[in-house]
């Protein structure tokens, strides 16, 4: 039975194992590879996508769970929050190896979409599900504050 959902604004119908995690369906079946595999058990956040606007760990979300829902990946990010976050990421040169950054950005966009004046504690809460082994956390924090400032201006 095919699973039907919206991916980055486009309707998608996938007839694969409904237990296949959303991450692998999007990567292997659809070919969008911006979302990464890091742990396979919702521990690291490298696979973060938005489902109906909420950040979810796509490595641990079965494809069947997004039936009828709207999924956004890093490739489909748009709007002023996304722009502010991605520009701040470039300006602060957050990325080192860069592998986790799609997930970091998805979490940061979700945070700033509901809170344009996050405190350090708000940032900790929203971002602690996203591991960065290069430990770019200092710059993730400053980029989020900077993007928030842009959004408030």
């Amino acid at each position: 039975m095919a699973v039907n959902f919206t991916l980055n604004g486009q309707p998608v119908s996938l007839d694969v194992d409904p237990d296949m995690p959303l991450l692998w369906a999007v990567r292997d079946e659809i070919g969008l590879t911006g979302s990464k595999f890091g742990c396979g058990m919702a521990q690291c956040g490298a696979c973060t996508m938005h489902v109906d606007g909420e950040p979810v760990r796509s490595c641990s979300t079965p494809l069947s769970a997004v039936e009828g829902q709207s999924v956004t990946t890093i490739e489909g990010l748009q709007g002023k929050v996304a722009q502010a976050v991605q520009d701040a990421w470039v300006k602060h040169e957050v990325a080192q190896c860069g592998y986790c950054q799609s997930g970091q950005i998805m979490s940061a966009v979700a945070l700033l979409s509901s809170n344009t004046q996050p405190s350090d504690d708000d940032i900790n809460e929203a971002m602690q599900g996203n591991i960065c082994r290069c430990a770019t956390y200092v710059r993730i924090r400053s980029a989020i504050h900077d993007a928030a400032k842009t959004l408030r201006a």
Binding site: D28, G31, T33, G34, S35, K36, F37, T73, I74, E75, L77, Q86, W89, V90, E93, V94, A95, G98, Y99, Q101, S102, I105
Partner: peptide
């Protein structure tokens, strides 16, 4: 000088080994 890889590593286009897809490739 700005890092050359800052933008592709902020929009999901930077290509890693995990992202390679050769014709007919198996995993």
């Amino acid at each position: 000088v700005p890092r050359l890889d800052a933008r592709p590593k902020s929009n999901g286009t930077a290509q890693f080994t995990l992202d390679v897809k050769q014709p007919g490739q198996l995993t």
